[in-house]
Amino acid sequence: MSLTPDQLRRIALLARIEVSDAEQRGVTERLNAVLGLIDQLQAVDTRGIEPMSHPLDGRLPVRQRLRADEVTEADRREAYQKGAPAAEKGLYLVPKVIE
């Protein structure tokens, strides 16, 4: 299938990536080439096959490991915020959201 300009706009919005008008044609063209590749899967008969989300599923016992719900980390807020584009008084700064 081929993407329409509306579909591309919708995907770009969901992905939070700005696609300029100048880029649109080239982006669509290459996305369509990739969609052509993955569309080959539509012809595969997978009736009765369970989706596989863990790569070892099926051959090895896979279980979700959960840890006890307790504090395991020390407070390193300052170190973590050192790389933030804008932080102040322990808070991350972003443009105003609520008027």
């Binding site: 993955i38 539509q42 595969v44 369970e50 989706p51 596989m52 099926g58 051959r59």
Partner: peptide
């Protein structure tokens, strides 16, 4: 369903080949 789940099903076919 058409892409992601279908790909995960086909993924199992590939794993079965190796098994």
């Amino acid at each position: 369903d058409a892409y992601y789940l279908q790909a995960q099903r086909a993924r199992r076919l590939i794993a079965k080949d190796f098994a």
